[in-house]
Design a binder for these strands. Structure first.
Length: 788
DNA sequence: CCCACCGACTTTTTT
DNA sequence: AGTCGGTGGG
């Protein structure tokens, strides 16, 4: 259909219409990556080259998967049922549910999120009397997840020393515990699915024959295991259509392996490498800045963005004295933008780390500007919600000790640490879960535990025929949770969230297409289906067509391979909900650079551009850390459509200490002709001269020099002198002053020394002036007199 | 069992 | 600074 391909540029067109072979699409920021991916699927189907069940679309986030689905169905009216589009984890979950027996899992297996996993590990270590000081649970968690993401079971890990040997031993014990409890953690979903396919040739052949078109989004973010999983599924035909951007790889810290792109190109002998370099988002200067910056990275696959839009405005740069002054300036600029008709939601303030948001938030609150922060607690991670889910999990699977431990005494019912310890001992002795071990505990502990066991049993019986929303509502009440939060002073929000959980259950049921009265704990069969919904694949499986047409248990035909309750619990683990604190109205967007990936805004502020912060000091310790920081900066810059602001502060309050930073090295990596300094640019190593005018300010109609305070003008204000990068401790050397001392300055008047730093020619003092606030003064320049 | 206090921690984050 | 987690007293 021609209109499908209309308006695609030549590269996009070429990518969409590639033959069914391995392909790597290097898609720059704002180059229409998602559009290509979606149009490709639509085109394949429309041309009769593929049917929906032969398509596997893989993304990293649920949001991306949803967007893919909705844009696809908007593009053409196809039956998307049978098409598998989802996250790696979601797809693996689906496959494991369909083949739970082959995968060695109970039908009701539950998914541990990161927090659940950590508490499971802590419980394990406690049971084994492992010293948490010597072997921190967090480290073990990292170790286990890391190993799994490399595709390694405990037996496959090389234990190089005693310390590692202990970790390997604990990894093994942890996996056994998970198996006994019938739970899987996030990386386990992938590894287990990988093993399922690799140890089960008929099943593997089935899926390989079925998914003839595998499309992967954000390929640069895949880890080793995900790569291996894809490769296994692709099989002989190898037709993976991978879309990604090595320059936007910013998740190495969580296992993403950019090298996968190059490996893919070589291993799959990719003949079709297409670069999407036409950018439809940003104006010229912004793009120039991004290109110029990222050119400093080595080992790139190579790509240069271009635009048809004009140069646009220059990139504005602002140097502030302090973080709060930086925030003040940002807010003034935002005000000005809004007054010219800019939409608040089209303005984003980005920062490297979450801690930086506070100052900006305070300033925005004071200015009365609505804003929205991304990255708070998500719905399914709230404690009251997790408590309710734990009861639900326990109803479904009594062996889930993580859920058991969470709620056995919440709300409190007189089951203390001692009773739980006794129970845990009994469970270990009989090698059962805690719930099952309850009858073995005697005495008072046994009685109260028995009460809890009865409660769960009663819940299980009562909810047997209830629908999912009814079950949730019943559990919230019968568990005592609603009563508990009713009596809690600050419990109103939590009560509302529990009600919201019931609503979420209702929404889930309707979205999944269940009848409203479908029992939550039975597997609904589609009309005509008689088999238990586990897909059985014959060894001489002829392939996709027969199965798709005739096997009602094929997950493609029958999506109900799990009960509504199991589905809902999976959903709660796999999709923790929205990440926005305050949704809703027109608001300025605040978020980390990471969170901004994939988004775009008319105006973008990149703040805190200081050595130590951005690039972050910790990155200096990591291999290729600086390059990843640079990619992060690249992502940040390319979020802006029309206007980009960069700012940094000489001093910043961080972790209760004032730090003095020099401006980020990234400024030196930007093309200077695209930059417009709103404050005078201080060359590295140079001192500020005695400026007394505002020359260099105010040319830009947005800047408001009259509103600035405590900066500029003063000959003695400390400039971005060559401070050591990452300096953050106070060194009171031979300054001749001491903290607390009363001093006098010819211009600022009386004040008190609040901090000292450096020595000799570089010595500086922070002085709190009675009338001019706190300032940093270079003692070599400032005429500071001791009063006394 | 609950509360209060102390101390450690603090890059980025999805599933 | 601010939060979370662990410990100890009431």
């Amino acid at each position: 259909m021609p209109e499908l391909l209309a308006n695609l540029n030549p590269e996009q067109h070429a990518a969409v219409t590639l033959p069914n072979e391995p392909a790597l699409i290097l898609a720059g920021a704002g180059s229409g990556k998602t559009r290509v991916l979606i149009t490709r699927i639509a085109w394949l189907i429309q041309q009769g080259l593929a049917s929906p069940p032969t398509i596997l679309g893989v993304t990293f986030t649920n949001k991306a998967a949803r967007e893919m689905m909705s844009r696809l169905s908007a593009l053409l009216p196809i039956d998307t049922r049978g098409m598998w589009i989802g996250t790696f984890h979601g797809l693996c979950n689906r496959m494991l549910r369909a083949h739970f027996r082959d995968a060695g899992l109970p039908q009701t297996f539950q998914i541990l999120d990161t927090a659940d996993q950590l508490s499971a590990i802590k419980r394990l270590m406690k049971g084994l009397n492992i010293d948490d000081e010597k072997y921190p649970a967090k480290n073990l968690q990292y170790f286990i997840n890391n190993a799994k993401e490399q595709g390694l079971r405990a037996k496959d890990v090389d234990a190089t020393d005693n310390f590692n040997r202990k970790f390997v031993e604990l990894y093994e014990a942890y996996d056994q515990q998970c198996q006994r409890e019938g739970v899987v953690d996030f990386p386990e979903l992938l590894l287990r699915c990988y093993e399922l396919l690799s140890y089960n040739p008929p099943l593997r052949a089935h899926y390989q024959a079925r998914f003839r078109h595998i499309l992967v989004d954000e390929f640069q973010d895949t880890n080793k295991l995900q790569y291996a999983w894809l490769k296994l599924l692709a099989g002989e035909h190898n037709a993976i259509f991978a879309v990604g951007d090595d320059d936007q790889s910013i998740y190495a810290f969580r296992g993403a392996n950019v090298g996968n792109m190059r490996d893919f190109e070589q291993e799959f002998k990719v003949r079709n490498l297409i670069k999407l370099e036409q950018n439809y988002r940003s104006h010229g200067h912004i793009l120039d800045a991004a290109n110029h910056l990222i050119a400093n990275n080595s080992r790139r696959l190579g790509k240069n963005l271009r635009t048809d839009a004009g140069h646009g405005e220059p990139v504005r740069v602002y140097e502030a004295a302090t973080d709060s002054q930086e925030a003040g300036w940002i807010v003034e600029e935002i005000r000005a933008l809004i007054s010219t008709g800019a939409s608040r939601s089209e303005i984003a303030v980005l920062y490297r780390s979450n801690a930086q948001s506070r100052t900006i938030e305070h300033t925005l609150v004071n200015a009365g500007i609505p804003y929205r922060v991304y990255g708070g607690l998500r719905f399914f991670e709230r404690q009251e919600v997790k408590h309710a889910l734990a009861y639900l999990r326990l109803i479904d699977n009594p062996n889930d000790d993580t859920a058991f431990a969470r709620v056995v005494n919440f709300p409190t019912r007189g089951i203390g640490a001692r009773s739980i310890e006794q129970l845990a001992d009994a469970a270990r002795l009989y090698n059962t879960s805690m719930a099952v071990a309850i009858p073995y505990v005697t005495g008072k502990a046994g009685t109260s535990l028995g009460g809890f066991a009865n409660l769960i049993a009663k819940m299980r019986a009562e909810t047997a025929q209830m629908s999912l929303p009814e079950t949730v509502e019943y559990v919230v009440r019968a568990s005592g949770l609603s009563e508990f939060y009713q009596n809690e002073r600050e419990g109103q929000d939590r009560l509302e969230n529990l009600q919201e959980l019931v609503n979420a259950a209702t929404a889930f049921v309707s979205e999944e297409g269940y009848g409203l009265d479908t029992p939550a704990r039975s597997i609904p069969l589609r009309p005509g289906a008689t088999a238990a919904p586990e897909l059985v694949v014959a060894t001489d499986d002829p392939g996709v067509d027969v199965l798709d047409a005739e096997n009602p248990a094929d997950p493609a035909q029958n999506p109900d391979t799990m009960t509504p309750l199991a589905g809902f619990l999976s959903h709660a683990s796999l999709e923790a909900g929205d990440n926005q604190a305050q949704a809703g109205q027109e608001a300025v967007q605040l978020m980390t650079v990471h969170a901004a990936k994939g988004l775009e805004f008319t105006a973008v502020f990149i703040t805190g551009l200081e050595e130590g912060l951005f690039p972050h000091e910790n990155s200096a310790m990591e291999t290729d850390g600086l390059e990843e920081e640079r990619r992060l900066m690249y992502v940040a810059i390319t979020r802006a459509k029309e206007r980009l602001y960069l700012s940094f502060a000489q001093s910043r309050m961080l972790h209760g200490q004032t730090r003095y930073n020099i401006r980020s090295r990234f400024f030196d990596e930007l093309p200077q002709e695209t930059l417009k300094w709103l404050t005078p640019k201080v060359e590295a190593g140079a001192r500020w001269g005695g400026r007394s005018d505002n020359a260099g300010w105010g040319r830009d109609w947005f800047s408001r020099p009259d509103r600035q305070q405590g900066y500029g003008g003063g000959a003695s204000t400390v400039p971005s002198a060559p401070l050591p990068a990452f300096a953050n401790e106070q060194r009171a050397a031979d300054t001749g002053f001491r903290v607390g001392q009363q001093v006098f300055h010819t211009k600022f008047g009386e004040g008190t020394v609040t901090a000292l730093e450096g020595g000799g020619a570089d010595a500086k003092a922070q002085v709190k002036f009675k009338r001019h606030g706190e300032k940093w003064l270079a003692l070599a320049v400032a005429k500071l007199q001791a009063v006394e």
